[in-house]
Write a protein that binds this DNA or RNA. Structure first.
Length: 280
DNA sequence: CCCGCGTCCTGCGGGC
DNA sequence: TGCCCGCAGGACGCGG
């Protein structure tokens, strides 16, 4: 479920809760969750200290002593919870880190889509998604020049393009719909037909929206909450996502939902129209 | 190389 | 009510 702002919120929560803690042992309850054979994964993590938690796009990089890093991707529904030793194990708990202070860090994931890759620090690029990941959606990293170049080279529809992590890191289905609505760009618009003004508008909205969502601790759907039990509140600031049939907040036209590249896509059919080449 | 599609999983809500 | 189907904030790997 989580997109960049939710993963960043998890990163901050984990930093508060477990940075500096030592792992006594690890239990892998669902072997496919980890890249190494279960026993090797468990053995390698024995007695390691969690030094800090970094993030790249939607990936958490859990830095451990002895130059080890767990590359953790939550995919749709992964979450970390800290529980006291002895708390009942939920049916969706797949990895348990026993800490030396008596607490446990538990990885829970209803759909089992999440993955943990244990690698040597510095060799994160051996993880498939990190090899090709695009720039972070920040003022410094996501430059106008870069956007102009990649947009000029593809005829792909802009919505699926924004979901491609090798182009820009961190956007998912919700924020892609939101930034296109904010930028008044139709989700089916081919990227090489978006004017420079449109690209600049989109870039500004991507950067600002991600920052705003991080400030709001991310978007909560279902019963998602962060490691520290803190639910995000950004869902209250969504303009189009999940608002099918409700009036557009700019013009009152009912929001439409279509399917693009297998993903639900929300937009305003009046504010967001497909333009001709470079016609804004 | 690019693109679209199936696949990995479980739970929930809508419709019959 | 019960069942079946489609859908869900992701991304990889495959084949064309």
């Amino acid at each position: 479920m989580p997109e960049l702002p939710e993963v960043e919120t998890v990163r901050r929560g984990l930093t508060e809760l477990v940075a500096g803690s030592q792992i006594r042992s690890v239990d892998v309850l669902y072997a496919k969750m980890v890249n190494l054979p279960k026993v090797a994964f468990e053995k390698a993590l024995k007695n390691k200290t969690i030094e800090k938690i970094d993030r790249r796009g939607k990936y958490l990089l859990i830095r451990l002593s002895d130059d080890l890093t767990i590359v953790s991707h939550l995919r749709m529904e992964g979450k970390y919870d800290v529980e006291p030793e002895g708390a009942p194990i939920g049916k969706h708990t797949h990895v348990i880190f026993h800490l030396t202070d008596g607490r446990q860090l538990r990885y829970n994931d209803t759909r089992k889509f999440g993955r943990m890759n244990l690698v040597n620090t510095g060799e994160e690029l051996s993880v498939a998604g990190l090899k090709t990941i695009g720039p972070e959606p920040t003022e410094q990293d996501l430059t106008v020049d870069y956007m102009e170049t990649i947009f000029g080279k593809s005829k792909k529809m802009v919505k699926p393009f924004l979901l491609d992590q090798s182009k820009i890191a961190g956007l998912g289905n919700i924020y892609a719909d939101e930034v296109l609505w904010l930028s008044k760009i139709h989700p089916e618009q081919p990227v090489n037909s978006i004017s420079l003004a449109g690209i600049k508008r989109l870039r500004k909205n991507i950067i600002a929206e991600i920052q705003k969502a991080i400030a709001g601790h991310g978007t909560t759907v279902h019963s998602y909450s962060t490691a520290s039990g803190e639910a995000g509140n950004f869902q209250n600031q969504l303009n189009v996502y999940g608002r099918e049939g409700e009036p557009c907040l700019r013009c009152g036209t009912p929001i439409v939902k279509i399917k693009l590249a297998q993903r639900g896509t929300h937009f305003c059919p009046k504010c967001q129209v497909v333009h001709g080449v470079n016609n804004d």
